[in-house]
Amino acid sequence: MGLQYALFTGCVAKGAGRELLTSTNLVLNKLGVELFEMSDAACCGAGVASEDNVMVSDVVNARTFALAEERGMDIMNICVTCQGVHKKAQHRMAEDAEYTAQVNDVLKGETGREYKGKARVRHFAKILIEDIGLENLKKHVVKPLGAIKAAAFYGCYAVRPHTYSDLKNPDDPDEMELILEAIGAKTVNYPGRLKCCGFPILMMNKQNSLTMAGAVVRSAKESGADCLVTQCPLCHLNMDAYQPEIDESLQTPVIHIQQLIGLAMGFSAQELGMDTHIVSPSGALAAI
């Protein structure tokens, strides 16, 4: 039996970032990975629901973990925010057995389910490196992206707080670069690589939010990148959908990492939904 995962799509991949789900499915199908979309799992709360009421958010997420456990599978996230929020919820419960019992008490009472602490939660990139293997990925590359200089953008929830990070060296990670190099792309090191994109405060302080997004895009562009590569659709939205408002002249496409992998596998930009991006990637990709 090949690799199987319970896919937690997150809300954006079902809404304003549907191309993320499309490209994930294409890429993992090619790699022979079987995905079971968790159509019954609820929104992770994005770190906001827990600030309204931390326990209700933990119960809702414990339900998601229980659903994966019932299927006997680990969870794959394709949004770094969902992954970070899930890990934080698991961490809170792992540290406090009494609290976990209270969470399970409500969960069992209202849904008949129970979180046993078994379902592992990892992001696509982590699973790609750990379970699928970059050597295996390389075998599926038919169109190496040597002509592209890609700037990896990690996303806060992948990096910080270090306690919850899955990266080997969160202050100087190389996981995304290793994936990009496996598909033949050139990578650029740039100051904004581990910064915040500003998305979470878009509704509270748009000016600060977009200044932060702009600083990242500018930093990548000035370091010679043709495009930014994200592993969180929220970072993608802030830097892509708002880029014309930030600075029309930036013209730096923001691409989901799954899309770039898909290109190297021979899928067309259109199949991967790249035509839906606000900043058209066609210029950056013309060199391939």
Partner: peptide
């Protein structure tokens, strides 16, 4: 986003078994 077909669908997306989540929120 609408011009690029990126806008979220107008009809809301409901998860399966949403009743379970509603019950959790009601309890809280």
């Amino acid at each position: 986003m609408m011009r690029k077909r990126k806008a979220p669908p107008l009809l809301p997306h409901f998860i399966d078994k949403v009743g379970e989540v509603r019950k959790i929120y009601k309890r809280f």
